[in-house]
Design a protein around this nucleic acid. Structure first.
Lengths: 166, 166
DNA sequence: AGAACAATGTAATATCATAACATTACTCAA
DNA sequence: TTGAGTAATGTTATGATATTACATTGTTCT
């Protein structure tokens, strides 16, 4: 599922998701060990929850899952962990959904493109240098200095599109 | 400032903004007359407020400006007008800012790219077929059916970038 | 004039996010 | 090992954005 170039196909129901989670958690641990930042229990737990699917997930959804029984955590609890994970590029924020999704190239500075299915909610992360190049060229012509790209494509994945045709 | 291809340069302080507003309002009127939808007082007022600058503006900012004296309007008032203007492609929503900006190709179905200066807040709307083509190609490879593109580039415009170098 | 529908007003509430300050946990030098 | 300094988390309150539901007003068309 993971590769240097990001997910190349849409996540399928058949894929072994445990592998995705494992890879992500190990990469996060490696990154934190290498750079000397702390992947605390809470941060690890939030990262696991984000990685529980390939669907962008909202902060308050995560919050509910954090304390399934009894007293519940307050918003800053989850937002601080999300901020940490964002800062270290372990997750991405999907602005068009106010939601968060695991990153495929953790700890590595990059701007990605997201293809997000409106029906099943799953998302694929791509890094297409052509998109990047075209945007950089446009920016140059405008005299604009890019800091961050937000490229989020909404639509229907193949499965859901087929399903609707019936 | 306006053209068939969208703003090609960043809005400058020197440009005659009254022309931008005039053009936008006339295009909106034409569109509504042609298609038989109603550009009511309220909707016109909201559109004018959105066009009062080239900066994306928040719904609550608009709301405040709607009733400068005395009783103030409630959120649905402005959101309904914004929904109408969005539906008819007279404005765009900038997801990364939760804000709204006038559209340069009103009433015309298109996906644009936005370059938004973090310092001065001004934004330029471009339509670069290369970006579109690259994304469509990626989508095809994923078996993905695009419905809507969100391409929002944050950074510094030339003016603000120069200013910071000093 | 009045029926049908579109637009707007109003009150309440949902959803997403941060500020400010208190408490706990960790690190590291002495 | 201890305690001072810092990092992380807990807690309460509030800010910012957006929607639901229902009442009222305005427009259109016979």
């Amino acid at each position: 599922m993971n590769s240097k170039k990001g997910i190349q196909r849409f996540p399928t129901p058949r894929h072994n998701h445990a592998t995705c989670v494992n890879t992500a958690m190990h990469q996060a641990e490696d990154y934190c060990n290498r750079t000397g930042v702390r992947l605390t229990q809470l941060r690890r737990r939030v990262l696991e929850l984000v990685w529980s699917s390939h669907r962008p997930v909202g902060a308050y959804d995560l919050l509910e899952q954090l304390e399934p029984k009894g007293r519940k955590a307050a918003p800053p609890t989850v937002y601080r962990s999300l901020d940490f994970l964002l800062e270290h590029k372990l997750i991405h924020r999907i602005d068009s959904l106010n939601a968060f999704i695991g990153c495929n190239q953790p700890g590595h500075e990059h701007d990605a493109q997201f293809f997000i299915c409106k029906a099943c909610g799953e998302a694929a992360e791509l890094i297409d240098p052509k998109v990047e190049r075209a945007l950089v060229k446009d920016a140059n012509q405008l005299g604009f200095n890019i800091e961050k790209q937000t490229v989020e494509i909404a639509g229907l994945c193949n499965r859901c599109h087929q399903g609707r045709k019936k």
